Every structure is written in structure tokens, then in C-alpha cells.
Computed example of a mutant assay.
Amino acid sequence: MRTLSLTNIRRLGVKELWSLWRDPMMLVLILYVFTVAVHTAATAMPETLHNSPIAIVDADDTPLSRHIVAAFQPPQFVWPAIISMNDMDPAMDQGLYTFALQIPHGFQRDVLAGRNPAVQLNVDATRMSQAFSGSNAVQQIVMGEIDAFIERQRGERVQPIELVLRYRFNQTLDKGWFGSLMQVINYITMLSIILTGAALIREREHGTIEHLLVMPVTPTEIMLSKIWSMGLVVLVASALSIHLVVRGLLGVPVEGSLPLFFAGAALCLFATTSMGIFMATIARNMPQFGMLLVLILLPLQMLSGGFTPRENMPDLVRHIMLLAPTTHFVELGQAILYRGAGIDVVWRPFAWLLAIGTTLFMLSLARFRKTISRMA
């Protein structure tokens, strides 16, 4: 059995880099996902309440109603438009406002008298992303202003105990912090699978894989060359994205050690690039590889804990996803980038990634050897 040649692995890897350099579509894909897509994910989170248009019918025109009107401010809401009751329904029908709040006549009088006056809130539910979170925000703002007004008018004594909320790791609850870093983590997984799988299928379609079979190289050397070259491309692109886009353009702070994070990313890339080669040996062409990629990539990203906490998932799903490299990569990525964790905290995900990567590499190598033996 011939020993591995580091020179062959290096030269074959350089060949893969030159092949990628001559593929403009792949270069555009890499550039897009680590710049525009990351920035878009951070600035256009769909559940964020931002500059929602609101109109108010103030039929009371009292200090309390004016306090309520003044409480709706950017960036959650635009400055409220004061309209009449007759204009409310036509404006909502035209889609001019997402929310229309009606404050009835005698509202302040009824509040101070201890009665329960009704305040009407009309919501344009076709704007689903803002309707749900915005309704709760409007209710909290109105109730907060009423409580503060009653306390000032009646001079009620402040309670001896006050609950103070303190947010850790993301004090301003900026969803852009979460969106940008999670997209970088997801794109590392996605591109590593795409690049290695496409590299193997491209060689098969161009007939260059037959040239490799007559050279003094082994299947292991061919696989390792694709793994290190495509993994290096993804690592460099993700590092530039974090430094230039996430930290530079978006101003998102990174709490932990970036070298430790990229060490974990390298282990994840070892597993996902092996997975990409395994998928490429199953697919006969790029369209089949694309369909297979959808079936594999969506569960890897949706069930890894990046979008939904794993604690909210069924036990069966949580146990199965322990076999996926993305689960442990998301865990260590969030711990390091968000909470500044060290190796003493994230050593378990590192161990899982090493074990999963080794297993996937051995399975992919066996499948790759079987594939090229049929071609020979």
C-alpha cells in the first residue's frame, strides 16, 4: 500500500484552486453570499418592527391622549399621522397604514374615574411580519402611558420592589447581530458542500477525472486535495466577511476568539466537504446534485439550532441532529462569537466535529473508490 504524498496533495489542491479561479459563476456565488447576502440578512430581518406606519384618531385631545400619541416614535414606528374617524377606513383600505389607533372621546375622564374605556386598534394583517409583533408593541405602549399617567395624577407610592430587565450578550436586542453571524455560519456549510461536490462533478463532466486515474495518485490524495483547497477558499472568504462586512460595515461586535472559531470551522469543513464529495458520487450531473443539495442542506440549516432553539424541537429530531456537523458548529459558533466562550466550554462540539468528520471522510472515501473503480 503506497503512502500518501504531500506533494501530490498540494499540487492537486492547487489545480482545484486554478479550476475554481476559471469558473466565474462560482466566484460570483462566493462573493455574493459572503457580502450582499450577509448584509441583507442583518438589515432585513422579517420579524423586526421597523418604521411601521401608524395613524391615530384622537377624539379625546387630552394630556393623556397626547402622551400616547407622542409615545409612538422611530425606529419602531414612523411619527403617527393624526387623522379623522371618517378617514381611517379608506386609509386602511388603501394600505397607507399598518395600524390605526382610535382613542374615544372622554377617554382620560373614564380612566381617572376607574372605568374601562375601549380603545380600538385596527391592524392590516396582510402585512403579516409586522402585524403580529406590532400589535403587542402598540398594546404595551398604550398601557405603559396609562399607568404612568395614573401614577402622576393620583400620586401613588412607588412599589418597594422593581423588576429590572438586563439583557446579556446583545443588550440592545439588535437582530442584525444574530442575523449576520448566523448567515456566515450557514454559508460556510453551504459553500463547502457546493464547492467540493461541484469540483468532482465538473471533472467528471469534462473528462479530467480519467486523467487522474492514470496518474500515480491515490483516491485518498484526490479527496484530501479537494478538501483542503475548497476548505481554504471558504475559510478565507468567511474571515474576510466577518472582518469587512460583519465587524466593519455592520459594526457587530465579536466577543470571543476568532482563531478558536475558525479552528472549529476547519473541523466542520472537514466534515461538510467530505459530505459534498459523497453527494457528488451519488449524483450523475449538476442538476441532480442541486436537487440532492436541497434535500440535505435545508434540514442541516433549519434543524441545527441556528434559527430555532434545539430545546423546542421534538426529542427524536434533537437526537438525530446530533449526528449532523452543523448542530455542533452552530453550538460552538454561538458560544464563541456571542458569549466569548473558550476551549474549556466548547471542547465537546470540537470532539463531536472531529468524530463526525472522520466518519464522513471514511464513508466518502469508500464511496469515491468504488466510483472511480467503475470508471477505470
Results as ranks from 00 to 15, higher is better:
Thr62Asn: 10
Pro117Ser: 02
Phe350Asn: 07
Leu200Met: 11
Thr3Cys: 04
Gln120Asp: 12
Val38Asn: 04
Ile222Asp: 02
His39Ile: 13
Asn122Ile: 10
Leu213Ala: 07
Leu112Ile: 05
Ser257Arg: 02
His105Gly: 07
Lys370Phe: 07
Thr126Lys: 12
Ile30Arg: 11
Leu27Gly: 09
Thr273Met: 10
Asn116Ala: 09
Pro117Thr: 04
Tyr97Ala: 00
Leu20His: 14
Met190His: 08
Ile146Asp: 11
Gln140Asp: 05
Ala266Asn: 01
Asp93Phe: 15
Leu165Gln: 14
Ala263Gln: 04
Thr371Asp: 14
Ser225His: 06
Arg202Gln: 09
Pro314Val: 00
Ile201Lys: 11
Gly114Cys: 00
Val138Ser: 05
Met302Tyr: 14
Ala341His: 10
Val14Tyr: 15
Val38Thr: 04
Ala118Trp: 11
Lys15His: 15
Leu353Cys: 04
Ser274Asn: 02
Val158Lys: 13
Ala100Phe: 12
Leu163Tyr: 12
Phe77Val: 01
Gly333Val: 01
Leu195Glu: 00
Leu29Asp: 10
Trp347Gly: 00
Ile201Trp: 07
Ser192Lys: 14
Val252Ala: 07
Thr196Pro: 05
Gly95His: 08
Val345Lys: 15
Ala366Pro: 07
Met182Trp: 14
Leu332Arg: 00
Leu295Gly: 13
Ile222Val: 06
Phe368Val: 02
Val138Met: 06
Glu145Pro: 03
Gly305Gln: 03
Ser373Pro: 00
Met275Val: 04
Pro349Asp: 00
Thr308Trp: 12
Ser238Leu: 05
Met215Ile: 05
Met375Thr: 08
Phe350Gln: 06
Arg348Cys: 03
Ser238Arg: 06
Glu311Tyr: 05
Arg11Val: 11
Gln301Lys: 02
Thr281His: 07
Arg22His: 15
Pro219Lys: 12
Gln153Asn: 07
Leu353Gln: 09
Pro160His: 03
Ala265Met: 04
Phe368Lys: 08
Asn51Lys: 13
Leu181Glu: 12
Met25Phe: 15
Ile161Leu: 12
Glu47Tyr: 14
Gln76Met: 09
Ala351Pro: 06
Ala125Ile: 12
Arg204Gln: 08
Leu195Arg: 06
Phe361Ser: 04
